[in-house]
């Protein structure tokens, strides 16, 4: 196959992945709306968590205590997709797996077409970042983590990202500028795309956490109602979602630190300085500092839960802005979009 055929095959695969992700999103939505069986299981777990929360004093250790108590009191329920009434969840997961396969094809074809790693410009970065998002999600599912209810947000995020990439960032497959020709492209940028995937999964969990947390607080005063609470009723306990988010961020933080350091080492070779407050560097630093604040908040009495989750959301906004906004609004060394 010529490189042009390959590039076209890659584009077709991306469109295919977007169609499949749309269907997956519908299936996950149906699962949240119709998955009645899990509501009861979730209700049982939450009743413990709510009771604990009501009894909890503001003392710093209480959260650690009732988390462990939940671990003891709640027998491990079935993972999403294991039960008959979770057909929609299973369909969503299968469709997501198919979208993952199509994205894999798109990336490989793109890489072969350009004769280099397929993450040399913004369009390719989005492909790789979306691929990692689905990969991390699938990895957690395979490892038996109960993250199925994040599927809708994750499929939606990947769909939006790919849509923006296709419409706004698309450039034909081509060779790289000299500064990008380096082993560090493999290391620095692939770590950054992996971080994009992990941050996205963590943020999906944070969004769901905020829904579940709101629902749990409102159910203490019996004022639940509305779409958000209807969604939240089918979610696992806020503590379990908070833990999923924390795990993702705890993995992403050192990774993001590594992205900065590897980028600095590369920048010294390519541009003659390891740190120069280039807009991309600045916003990477801002993202790192916000997630550092998140980790500290999570270890500080009075900042756990909602406050920490909001900090993480701000961090994700900074991360997305660093990727999209910095390349579009500011000029700097990282202007590789080719737009």
């Amino acid at each position: 196959m010529t490189s042009q055929t390959l590039a076209q095959a890659s584009n077709v695969a991306v469109y295919g992945a977007m169609v499949v992700l749309t269907l997956a999103m519908v299936a996950f939505a149906a699962d949240l709306a119709l998955g009645s069986g899990r509501v009861r299981a979730a209700e049982a777990a939450r009743s413990v968590s709510v009771r604990r929360r009501a009894a909890a004093t503001p003392a710093s250790d209480s959260v650690v205590d009732d988390r462990s108590a939940v671990a003891v009191a709640t027998p491990p329920g079935p993972a999403l997709g294991e039960r008959d009434d979770e057909r929609w969840g299973r369909i969503g997961i299968s469709l997501t797996a198919l979208a993952w396969l199509l994205l894999t094809v798109a990336l490989v074809a793109r890489g072969l077409a350009a004769g280099r790693p397929p993450w040399g410009n913004m369009y390719e970065f989005v492909l790789a970042g979306s691929w990692w998002t689905l990969t991390v999600f699938g990895f957690l599912l395979v490892r038996g983590r109960r993250v199925g209810h994040l599927g809708g947000v994750i499929a939606g995020a990947a769909l939006v990202a790919l849509g923006v990439a296709v419409v706004q960032f698309y450039v034909p497959a081509a060779d790289l500028v000299p500064a990008l020709k380096s082993t560090w492209l493999w290391i620095h940028v692939s770590a950054a795309t992996l971080a994009a995937g992990v941050f996205t999964v963590g943020t999906a969990a944070t969004v769901m956490f905020l829904l579940a947390d709101r629902y749990e607080r409102r159910s203490l005063t019996s004022t639940t109602g509305g779409v958000r609470d209807a969604l939240a009723r089918r979610l696992p306990s806020s503590q379990s979602l908070d833990r999923t988010a924390y795990r993702a961020y705890a993995f992403a933080f050192p990774l993001w630190f590594f992205v900065l350091v590897s980028g600095a080492i590369w920048a010294e070779d390519a541009w003659g300085r390891y740190w120069g407050w280039d807009p991309k560097e600045t916003w990477s630093f801002v993202t790192l500092v916000i997630f550092a604040a998140y980790l500290h908040a999570r270890a500080t009495a009075g900042w756990r839960g909602r406050s920490a989750a909001l900090i993480a959301l701000v961090g994700f906004v900074a991360f997305v802005f660093n990727f999209v906004g910095v390349n579009i609004f500011f000029s700097g060394f990282h202007s590789y979009a080719g737009l």
Binding site: G276, W277, D278, P279, T282, W283, F285, V286, V289, I290, A292, A293, H296, A297, A299, T300, W303, A318, V326, F330, G332
Partner: peptide, 27 residues
């Protein structure tokens, strides 16, 4: 205290931003 450290971290993040908005003499 952790609380002040948190606030300082936030200030650091916010304070770094204008350097990406306005041109910098050193760059």
């Amino acid at each position: 205290s952790m609380r002040v450290a948190l606030i300082l971290l936030f200030l650091l993040a916010v304070a770094a931003v204008p350097g990406s908005v306005f041109p910098q003499r050193g760059v």
